[in-house]
Amino acid sequence: MDTAHLVDLLLAVGMVVLALQVVSERAVLRSIILFVVFGLVMALAWTRLQAPDLALAEAAIGAGVTGALMMMAWRRLLIINPDQPADTPRGRSRVAVPVALLAAALVATIGLSALNIDPHANGAGLIALDELTDTSLGNPVTGVLLLFRNLDTLLEMAVLLIALLGARAVSTPAHPNEAAVVETSAPLVGALLAILVPLSILIATHLLLAGTNEPGGAFQAGAVLAAGGVALVLTARLQPGERPGVVTQLAVTAGLLAFVGIGVGIMAFGEKLLVLPGTWAIYVIETAMMVSIGLTLALLFAGAPALVGRPK
């Protein structure tokens, strides 16, 4: 067994063990932390499967953003009621174990039997690689997302917006304690932020631009941008606001506005629906999407309709 396979084995075992712990760990907070670790292991697994786009996305979105969201939600629960009883899994549902075993067996059978199947000769993947040569894009995943199957991406942005709108719609009046955010005025934090935030913007921009030819793209970039926003929220440099202003709304909807504007507006020029007029359109749309994703995730993290600067 060579090293590569050993790594694979470790990753596989790690996935299973971590997943088991995430689900069965006594303290919820530890579950969340283990989930983030699980996400990082997943990211490694994606690289082993030669899918660097997914590795980036898993690390930034799956582990990073989801973990941060979970953590923040847990913190809110604690603020609202500090005496939250520890949650331990109990054998509540008698069907749970059989169902789980059945599910695992089912999935394993079909997954393994699927390994024998060769990629379809007329499969979409091969055609995508063919079509890619007609475009100026180097990354086939970006090609699929923004050119070949861009309706999926457009509607996915809609899903993200719905999540934000939904979170606003179902929010109930906040608990008074929740407003009390840890105010950190330590100089070190300021210095850290001064590096972290520009860095996140830089990395995001790089991921965005690289995404046309190399791994990366609007989603990963948006997640990194969101990380910068999260840092600002955590240190109370940005604070939850009550009513979203026009700028917030514009930034949140920018991705969809650009996408719909170009993809549907193109019909006025006699083109077909969702045909993008050129590489510039891809850049415009991706930039707008990055801004929207970043802000949407930051807003969801802050649990508020808007973010405002720190009152002087």
Partner: peptide, 28 residues
């Protein structure tokens, strides 16, 4: 690599189903 990951993923899938059914806390 694929076989390993498929097996691991299947088990993880099962663990997920189990966790979803037995967990009481919504976060979990």
């Amino acid at each position: 690599t694929e076989i390993l990951f498929v097996l691991a993923a299947s088990v993880v899938f099962g663990i997920g189903v189990w966790g979803l059914l037995i967990a009481e806390h919504l976060l979990r």
